[in-house]
Design a protein around this nucleic acid. Sequence first.
DNA 1: GTGCAATAATGAATCGATTCAATGAATGCA
DNA 2: TGCATTCATTGAATCGATTCATTATTGCAC
Lengths: 346, 346
Amino acid sequence: MAKRVRLLDVAKAAGVSQGTASNAFGKPDLVRKEVRERILEVAKELGYRGPHVMARMLRTGKAGALGVVFPDNLEYAFSDPVAIELLRGVGRECARQAVNMMIISAENPEQAITAINNAAVDAFLVHCYSDDNDIISAIQRRNQPLVCIDTDIAGAAGTVVLDDFAGAQMAAQHLIDCGARKFAILSLQANKAENFGPMNAKRRGAVSHRVVRERLGGYHAALKKAGIAIEDIVHIECENMSSHSAEMVETMLRDHPEIDGILAMSDVIAIGALDGARAAGRKIPDDLKVIGFDGIAEGERTDPPLSSIRQDSVEKGRLAAEMALGEAESDSRVLETSLLVRGSTR
Amino acid sequence: MAKRVRLLDVAKAAGVSQGTASNAFGKPDLVRKEVRERILEVAKELGYRGPHVMARMLRTGKAGALGVVFPDNLEYAFSDPVAIELLRGVGRECARQAVNMMIISAENPEQAITAINNAAVDAFLVHCYSDDNDIISAIQRRNQPLVCIDTDIAGAAGTVVLDDFAGAQMAAQHLIDCGARKFAILSLQANKAENFGPMNAKRRGAVSHRVVRERLGGYHAALKKAGIAIEDIVHIECENMSSHSAEMVETMLRDHPEIDGILAMSDVIAIGALDGARAAGRKIPDDLKVIGFDGIAEGERTDPPLSSIRQDSVEKGRLAAEMALGEAESDSRVLETSLLVRGSTR
DNA sequence: GTGCAATAATGAATCGATTCAATGAATGCA
DNA sequence: TGCATTCATTGAATCGATTCATTATTGCAC
């Protein structure tokens, strides 16, 4: 293979200094028009392909890219509807700022750390639930701006979270207003260690995932206020997959026929719950009210359409990107939620 | 800000050559254990953050990333279910090969070209419909492996496409088998220039998007064989959005009450068609059969569930990534489709 | 014609690693 | 003891740009 044509070669051939040749490409207004044109012409003749990206990066220190990390589960980034909305928002802001989007990919945590160390980016965005994490430390070691989404980590440059507590409270209050009295909570995974199924008090007390902790707190607060004892609530921890929650709910409803209100921590789980309830012979919303969390588009098409707590995940991603790229005003934002009433509670 | 600690600083402090220090990090087995440990220790003391990514890239010429470009519409990449599956596949392969995934982001074609020129990647993957494209040229100018998905472009290192013709043929044949005789085809955008609505013969003759050309050809072939004249088919070009196709279909069904079979070039369009047909008072599948294309998961939950031509978009993305990263056997692959019969044609 | 400012161009230093031919030391074998 | 071989280390060259202090040129006003 022929040796790559360098800027220096172009400069020599055009009879100008390397500095001028560089400016002809990067800062055209610093070079006299005719000189610049000659340089570009010579460049074309020699087959120069434009400034070498890596060399420029090394010199300028700018990568022109934002790193996006999903430590908990990487396949999840392109599967979960909420994660996808998040990515859409990140992409939107990156496009606005003319910065590329580097998705850190890995099959396991160890690989992820290597991937992080090899990524030429200017800042990191990390979406995760747990806050104790080798991956987070690896990012922090790079000493670049880091914005955390959905969790608050000490030392992060910024944080974007939801007011999960208030949202959950709203959800539970809504079910109470609809007349439900016997509740089941379908929780997202609460800890690093998987432990799906009924959730005992001990595990409820040791929730390391911020989102789960807050939402659980919000549910409990509203229910308590309505005079419902926490011990009377059925807690189940579900994988964030409709098929999984469907199974769980079907079983659960057979064991606890009295349940008339289901609080699901995600719409994906809630959609499965609708299926499970149908399989267990319940009529929704007559026998049983179900409310999800997130307000994803799929919730419009379920049978019946799913009530939920709407969050703006696109904006969440966009905002986080904006922060990471250093254009945001504050370094910590809490987004609000709103109640979305549809057929599953009406 | 204190000056960054360089490898050279570490080497000096540890009393070894820079080469040895480099090896201590990059090729540990070339350095005696005690020496390596001392180097690492000194590095930690000095606050050395590990080899500088950009410097390494410049020297080695490897970026450790795969560029992914969506020239037609960038927001689309995180909106369309099929594009997302594609990304999932790409992500899977990238993870397997320990390579990051650089999503080229831009708001307009001009910006996209800059973004491409600024991206430190080892290869490119491009998903697009049209084959004449400034963006493609920009990528080709970089002289790196380029794999095209869903279109075949001269000079690409590889191509991954679907047997769209056969799939479309299968779809049309299925509707014929179900007894439909009066057809409407809901096409994806056929050309760079947007022109949604009824599609005249002239526009049908000048389809620049390969996918549309092939699928249209497949539909026509099957219908012709069944003795249906092309002129009797209603052609409508839709935006790939359910809400848009719903409107189009509702209007279309009022103008053409005889239609009893709808061939949609995507499931997204088909799902809108179900809504539009319902709004126009049709019963599916009794009055009207509808079949989509792609076989996306959402099709299971529509009312009625959507028949479709299934394609494995995840595998399409994975395979393309594999090719681009240079591990695939061949440089051109055509994937097969299969018929997915559900409620909308039964 | 002189002085001053503005504009162009120069060329060497720099960004921070990796690589590789050369050298030195240590080991194995006859 | 001598020679070949292996293992560890060195140090300079290299990857390919950008930057910036300096010099050269031009234009303009008085």
